[in-house]
Simulated assay, not measured.
Amino acid sequence: MPDLPLVARGKVREVYDAGDGRLLLVASDRISAYDAVLPTPIPDKGRVLTALSVWWFDQLTPVLDSFGATHHLLSATDVPAEVAGRAMLVRRLDMLPVECVARGYLSGSGTAEYARTGSIRDVALPPGLVEGSRLPAPVFTPSTKAAVGEHDEAIDFLRVVDLVGAARAEELRELTLALYRRGAEIAAEAGILLADTKVEFGVDAGGGLVLGDEVLTPDSSRFWPASSWAPGAPQPSFDKQYVRDWLTSSGWDRVSPAPELPDDVVAATRERYVAAYEQLTGTPFV
């Protein structure tokens, strides 16, 4: 976008200054795993992330309204032609320094921490849970927001209080869990389990809380087919866990440059992203 000033470049997105308090978020086909950007793109990934986020912002508006909050999306159509389909025009916000994570099932790093401590950070969990277990109730397990190439760090609720203040921390926890619960209900109607998700919030000029970035995409969430859910092992998924699993099996040490993805892994990953969009929204991806 040579006509717009570049504000930031993330693992997946470029952010441009669109003027008048607006930003242009452009989603690429890059894919990241274990805090590294992989050298192989996934075709159509940027379009899936954008279309699904736009759909979810609409679905989640009633939840945001009930908290007196909003989302940052202004338009997904009033964007430059060269990035049409993978860009959103959004409000510029003061982003909060917390990754807000909600979990309804035990998976990923949460499983490893639970196995060591019986909890995830300061959230105690009952004994006897295994990979893929449904939790008694959704839990809030936030993390820091790391720069590209650095690692997110799981934090407890008191650290969130330190970062944003007690009242805002409580607001973040309650709204994150409310968004997760509504997202899980909608996903369940489509035959999908929302195992966990990450959302980000900013503050507008009036101090209001605003849902930003992307929301409930295969990059930020774990989606499992409900029909094959079987606790006790890693679950089949509609998200980038497939890529994480391949990287683990490849022997990559997570320190050296990430390997190229084989063609079959690229194709299977694209298929999962598209399937998530189509099954959740009930519409074909074109």
Score class of each variant (00 low, 15 high):
residue 243 V to W: 06
residue 220 S to Y: 03
residue 226 A to K: 14
residue 203 V to Q: 08
residue 239 D to P: 11
residue 247 L to P: 05
residue 232 G to K: 13
residue 224 W to Q: 09
residue 218 P to A: 15
residue 207 G to M: 10
residue 254 R to I: 09
residue 228 S to F: 01
residue 197 T to I: 07
residue 216 L to I: 14
residue 230 A to L: 15
residue 238 F to N: 13
residue 203 V to S: 04
residue 246 W to T: 10
residue 238 F to S: 08
residue 210 V to A: 10
residue 212 G to C: 13
residue 219 D to T: 12
residue 216 L to A: 07
residue 214 E to P: 05
residue 214 E to A: 11
residue 234 P to A: 14
residue 249 S to D: 13
residue 241 Q to N: 09
residue 253 D to R: 10
residue 214 E to V: 13
residue 221 S to Q: 02
residue 208 G to M: 06
residue 207 G to E: 10
residue 250 S to K: 03
residue 219 D to V: 04
residue 230 A to D: 13
residue 211 L to R: 03
residue 247 L to D: 03
residue 226 A to H: 08
residue 218 P to G: 12
residue 246 W to C: 06
residue 234 P to F: 15
residue 200 E to A: 10
residue 222 R to S: 11
residue 198 K to T: 08
residue 217 T to F: 08
residue 240 K to L: 01
residue 245 D to H: 13
residue 214 E to C: 13
residue 203 V to F: 06
residue 253 D to G: 05
residue 239 D to Y: 02
residue 209 L to E: 04
residue 199 V to H: 00
residue 236 P to G: 06
residue 213 D to N: 12
residue 232 G to F: 06
residue 196 D to V: 11
residue 223 F to K: 03
residue 209 L to H: 11
residue 211 L to W: 13
residue 217 T to Q: 14
residue 218 P to L: 01
residue 238 F to I: 14
residue 243 V to D: 03
residue 218 P to I: 14
residue 248 T to F: 04
residue 230 A to W: 10
residue 253 D to C: 05
residue 206 G to Q: 14
residue 223 F to W: 11
residue 206 G to Y: 04
residue 214 E to F: 13
residue 219 D to G: 02
residue 254 R to F: 12
residue 217 T to K: 02
residue 253 D to W: 02
residue 205 A to D: 15
residue 228 S to W: 06
residue 239 D to L: 04
residue 245 D to S: 12
residue 220 S to R: 00
residue 245 D to Y: 12
residue 209 L to M: 09
residue 201 F to E: 11
residue 237 S to L: 02
residue 234 P to R: 00
residue 235 Q to C: 06
residue 203 V to H: 01
residue 218 P to K: 15
residue 231 P to G: 03
residue 246 W to K: 01
residue 229 W to A: 14
residue 232 G to Q: 14
residue 230 A to Y: 07
residue 222 R to K: 05
residue 249 S to C: 12
residue 248 T to W: 05
residue 224 W to K: 09
residue 232 G to Y: 02
residue 223 F to L: 11
residue 230 A to Q: 10
residue 199 V to Q: 00
residue 236 P to W: 02
residue 238 F to T: 15
residue 232 G to H: 09
residue 209 L to Q: 01
residue 250 S to G: 02
residue 239 D to V: 10
residue 214 E to S: 06
residue 245 D to C: 06
residue 225 P to R: 00
residue 221 S to R: 03
residue 235 Q to M: 15
residue 198 K to H: 08
residue 237 S to V: 00
residue 226 A to D: 03
residue 221 S to T: 03
residue 233 A to Y: 08
residue 201 F to M: 13
residue 249 S to G: 09
residue 215 V to T: 01
residue 245 D to A: 15
residue 198 K to D: 09
residue 229 W to T: 07
residue 246 W to D: 01
residue 202 G to E: 04
residue 221 S to C: 14
residue 204 D to E: 10
residue 225 P to T: 04
residue 202 G to D: 14
residue 224 W to H: 08
